[in-house]
């Protein structure tokens, strides 16, 4: 299991590096999917099969699918990418370096080794609706707000600029007065 963990972790890191270096948007997204798979395997080796399954269903299956859908819909040209200037890498690199240093220091501090105790779906459910029920309720409220917001944006009336004059019942080319005068 330990070997599996390290292989999956290495794949996750490698795939994520490939995500940010690809110039083709869809290829980058596909590498991100691979990275999410690797993270699912990491969860599985750590004894969380339920989280691993949800990682694949929710992230790799649904959320990334929406990304791919948006890219296809917007027809972002895959071959003429926007190059990020080298200077833009500095800020994130510094922040990430700080996080990495903290992580390594933190791992050095804790003395308990990695223990793979399997947590089944039933235990996850008990925890979610037991001690963490407040978090679940808050998350559901947030999702409800997002849902209502999306509904509101989608139901905006069409702007008058694209309204078809023929549908408004008036003939713009033939004024009613002129016809009455003749």
């Amino acid at each position: 299991m330990t070997a599996l963990f390290y292989i999956a972790a290495a794949v996750a890191v490698l795939a994520t590096v490939l995500v940010i270096t690809r110039s083709n948007l869809v290829h980058a997204l596909l590498y991100l999917v691979v990275s999410l798979f690797a993270v699912a395997v990491v969860f599985f080796t750590l004894g969380a099969p339920f989280v691993a399954a949800l990682e694949v269903i929710v992230y790799a299956g649904a959320i990334m699918m929406l990304f791919v859908f948006a890219v296809m819909l917007l027809n972002v040209s895959a071959d003429s990418p926007l190059r990020v200037p080298t200077s833009a890498w500095i800020g994130p690199l510094v922040l990430v370096a700080v996080l990495l240093a903290e992580l390594i220091y933190g791992i050095g501090l804790s003395d308990h080794a990695l223990r793979a105790v399997e947590v089944g779906p039933q235990q996850v459910g008990d925890a979610l609706f037991g001690p963490y029920v407040l978090g679940v309720e808050l998350a559901s409220m947030l999702l409800l707000a997002a849902l209502i917001g999306a509904r509101h944006i989608a139901s905006q009336p069409e702007s008058p600029a694209i309204e078809d004059p023929r549908l408004s019942g008036e003939e713009p080319d033939a004024p009613a007065d002129a016809e009455g005068a003749t």
Binding site: P49, A52, A53, V56, I57, A60, G61, M65, G120, P121
Partner: peptide, 15 residues
């Protein structure tokens, strides 16, 4: 023990 979720995961990847 996550059998059904596994099936759903595979079907969501088939997309």
């Amino acid at each position: 023990n996550v059998g059904l979720l596994f099936v759903l995961a595979m079907s969501s990847l088939a997309v």
